[in-house]
Design a protein around this nucleic acid. Structure first.
Length: 484
RNA sequence: GGCGGCAUAGCCAAGUGGCUAAGGCAGCGGUCUGCAAAACCGUUAUUCACCGGUUCGAAUCCGGUUGCCGCCUCCA
């Protein structure tokens, strides 16, 4: 069964057939490291994290490249404002990226290059472009001539004439065409700079991705990803540079994720509605955020509202309750043999795993996949309800098998990775209760209940409720948990 | 002005030509319980913004209308 991906270049869902059978090269535009990452960055990073996990689960050998843009106007500006050195500022936010994305369960890419590590190769590519007549030098700057590439604009579906007509931006008169863009920028005083055949300077933004993707994955590779906003001009220009320099096709499948809005408004510094991952993590456990970002199709816009996130949190709590219940009934899951006993590749038709694969194969329908997990959890609860106190080995086997399957798909989505206790603690916040005291109150209440002193039993329960403790009377006695 | 996308129940959200329109949240009724909690069962869209068209058959394809959004400038 093959994966179908929506290819922005053709505006269609297409069957994904890798260049080399069984192998996938994927390049995703990372972040410019001048500030903390926000939930929009989180969405993009998580979507491609899941894509890579899924490809691997399908048996592909994946080379995943995700870059850091560590030289750029914004970094230079921010460094100036804060009196920091641009390089150390970049380092600081690279560290912050790993910390924040790590908390969200994002795995590292195979290659995570910084632009500044590839300056020499960028210079070489610019030289090639000049030699081939696709670029020209003006003073210490080098520009790419968009008119020289016959299909410039085809990736983003634009025509040069249309853009020309709508453009109201002051055009640098050194450019031969208004849409020409800088490959190399002459250095201004006090800016990071590297020597080049055109004098000291730094590369234009698009160069790094052309060079690094080609360097790690070859001139033609399988998947290029990034946020929708990067389609133009960034990806269009990347593609133009590489195609012109290498004379072959660049990325074969272009995958773009949609934007995150906050309470129906685009995140922007001026509106003050920028939500950093760090701030979001103060309000919600990482998995709630992760699941929320995967609960809508990756290409659709996603509105981040408190109500919707909390609604989803309620759902995740229910999944964890099911897992906790499983633990008390059939015991802990055995991590080791999980991967051997269940597999994505030979799932029987119509089975849970088969349905999961069908959803994910269809342009990474994580929302549909999440729905399946809820259905499976309900099925497990039903089994546990029906079984009650008995210990039917058949039921045990079924439950364990169900749990293995849930964990298999949850690992691909990167959820349900906490133990239920840890998860509930994250939601309830740091414990303010003394377990000893609760146990003692519980004993008192149990005594009252055996004496059918309901008034006393209920008053104890109410007191515990006020302490944030919820009781559950079951056939095997009373258990307590933090109210979430 | 150019390009693109989206409109599915109270809210969020799958489904893109044909079984009874997934799932979650919230609500209501029920089972269980001394009462709760949790879980489960039932229930909440004869209908998928609106109007036409294609088809034996459309939420799903085509045309139009309305509304919302994104990109065209740094942006995940």
């Amino acid at each position: 069964m093959t994966i179908r991906l929506y290819n922005t270049a053709t505006r269609k869902k297409e069957e994904f057939i890798p260049l080399v059978k069984g192998k996938v090269g994927i390049y995703v535009c990372g972040v410019t490291v001048y500030d903390l990452c926000h939930i929009g960055h989180a969405r993009s990073t998580i979507v491609f994290d899941v894509l890579v996990r899924y490809l691997r689960a399908k048996g592909f050998e994946v080379t995943y490249v995700r870059n850091f843009t560590d030289v750029d106007d914004k970094i230079i500006d921010r460094a100036r404002q804060t009196g920091k050195d641009p390089a150390s500022l970049a380092r600081e936010y690279i560290d912050a990226f790993y910390k924040d994305m790590g908390e969200l369960g994002v795995l590292n890419a195979d290659k995570e290059p910084c632009a500044t590590e590839h300056i020499d190769r960028m210079i070489s590519m610019i030289e090639t472009l000049i030699d081939k007549g696709f670029a020209y030098v003006e003073g210490g700057d080098v520009y790419y001539a968009v008119e020289k590439l016959d299909d410039y604009g085809s990736l983003s579906g634009r025509r040069l004439e249309d853009m020309h007509a709508g453009s109201r931006i002051a055009v640098d008169e050194r450019k031969r065409h208004p849409m020409d863009f800088a490959l190399w920028k002459a250095a201004k005083p006090d800016e990071p700079q590297w020597s080049s055949p055109w004098g000291p300077g730094r590369p234009g933004w698009h160069m790094e991705c052309s060079v690094m993707s080609n360097y790690y994955l070859g001139p033609t590779f399988d998947i290029h990803g990034g946020g929708k906003d990067l389609l133009f001009p960034h990806h269009e220009n990347e593609r133009a540079q590489s195609k012109a320099a290498n004379g072959v096709e660049f990325a074969r499948y272009w995958v773009h994720n949609g934007f995150v809005t906050v309470e129906s408004e685009k995140m922007s510094k001026s509106l003050g509605n920028f939500i950093t991952i760090r701030d979001a993590l103060k309000d919600y456990p990482a998995e709630v955020l992760r699941l929320f970002l995967l609960s809508k199709h990756y290409r659709s816009p996603l509105d981040f509202t408190r109500k919707d996130v909390l609604d989803l949190q309620s759902g995740l709590i229910r999944l964890y309750r099911t897992l906790q219940r499983m633990k008390t009934i059939v015991g802990r899951s055995e991590q080791k043999d999980q991967s051997q006993s269940v597999s994505l590749v030979d799932a029987p038709d119509g089975s849970f795993l088969d349905q999961f694969v069908r959803n994910m194969d269809d342009d990474l329908n994580t929302a549909g996949a999440v729905g399946l997990i809820f259905e499976k959890a309900k099925e497990m609860n039903r089994l546990m309800d029906r079984q009650g106190n008995t210990t039917d080995p058949e039921v045990f086997k079924q439950l364990k098998d169900d749990r293995r399957q849930i964990f298999l798909v949850a690992r691909i989505l990167g959820i349900l990775q906490d133990s239920p206790e840890v998860f509930f603690t994250k939601i309830a916040g740091p414990a303010r209760v003394d377990p000893e005291e609760i146990e003692s109150m519980l004993r008192e209440r149990t005594k009252a209940r055996t004496e059918k002193d309901w008034a006393k039993a209920d008053s104890i329960r109410n007191r515990l409720q006020e302490m944030g403790v919820v009781l559950e009377d079951g056939p095997n006695g009373t258990t307590w948990r933090l109210d979430v």
